Amino acid sequence: MLCPDIGLPRFSSGPLVPVVAYLLVIVVLSGLVIISPGASPPPVLGMLWGVFLVALTVGALRIETVSPRSLLPPVRTLIPVIGVVIAFWGLYNLVAVALAVGGISGFDASLSRTAAHPLLYLAALFSSLLFTAIPEELLFRTYLQEKFTRLAGGATRRAVLAGIGLVAVLFALFHLPRWFLASGHGVGSALAARLLGLTLMGLAYGSVYALTGNLWLVALFHASMNQPPVIVSVHIPTELHLVASVIEYAAIVSLVYLTVRVVESGGTPLIWSRRNNPASTGD
């Protein structure tokens, strides 16, 4: 099954723990960016950052008297997770190849670096998954989104949507230290477009998590969006990046929603069913 049987956790504290955890993340990230202001941090620093996020999240959950292990999907869900992600990128590649063959600007009928060097791509994907996607999604979706959903009411659709929306904004703001400190950008239309794109990304990942409760699924989508497995060369013009992002994220959420409706038992996405499950995942 794609959706693990995980109820909304019964956290034992108020909003102080997630607020302090988030502020600590911003402070530590800002320090790391100052130390290593390049486009991408050294591998060792990236690994330490991932370990820090996991340790911080586990510590916050322990303070909340919630067992971190109880929130992790069973290993058996990896098979349908991989199937859904492969289906998405298979459709993506079909469209990209069709546009390239059709001579559409931005799509070239030549092999991408991914197709030319598959082993290097797999190594980059695994690194992104292990040290970026899983730690970030563990913090933002498994903890913060669930926490704020519980604080907003827990067993209501409005609470679920509030949790998704609030954490999507926090996820976008989380990227500001690198925007200001590493890239040297200022405040302007480019920043607004960047924040909008990141918020849409957070909304998509948050929706996938709310629909399935599966950390592996949302993390693999996150990692593969960071390292797109496209077999032809794609160069989307800057002015169309936001439009392309909207299409991509809408396709991800739609595919997951349809999969849950058609394949999962009962055909009811977790966004509407598991939230009414009062089961606790505490120790």
Score class of each variant (00 low, 15 high):
R10S: 08
T65D: 14
H222I: 02
T281P: 00
I63Q: 10
V44F: 15
Y121G: 02
V253H: 09
V160A: 14
P229M: 07
I35V: 14
G90K: 01
S265I: 09
G206C: 05
P80Q: 06
H175Y: 04
L16W: 13
G50T: 05
S36T: 03
A172N: 10
T281E: 15
W216D: 01
A55S: 12
L32R: 12
V95Q: 10
K147R: 11
S12L: 00
L203V: 10
I164L: 09
L61W: 10
H235D: 14
G213Y: 02
A190S: 15
P177G: 01
L173H: 03
M201T: 13
L196Q: 04
L176I: 01
L32E: 06
G153A: 06
S70H: 14
G31Q: 07
S280Y: 04
T77D: 01
V75G: 01
R62G: 11
I26P: 05
I134P: 05
T281C: 06
L270Y: 10
T281W: 07
F174S: 02
V234W: 09
G102H: 11
R10W: 00
A172K: 08
L111N: 11
A39L: 08
N276D: 09
R158A: 12
G50V: 03
F52P: 04
P229V: 03
V84Y: 15
L8C: 02
I247V: 15
A155S: 15
T238P: 00
L122P: 05
E64W: 05
L129H: 03
E136R: 07
R261V: 04
A96T: 11
R275S: 06
S265R: 15
L144Q: 08
R274M: 00
V81E: 03
A168Q: 03
A116N: 11
Q145N: 07
V17Q: 06
T199Q: 06
F11G: 01
S273M: 04
G202N: 09
G267L: 05
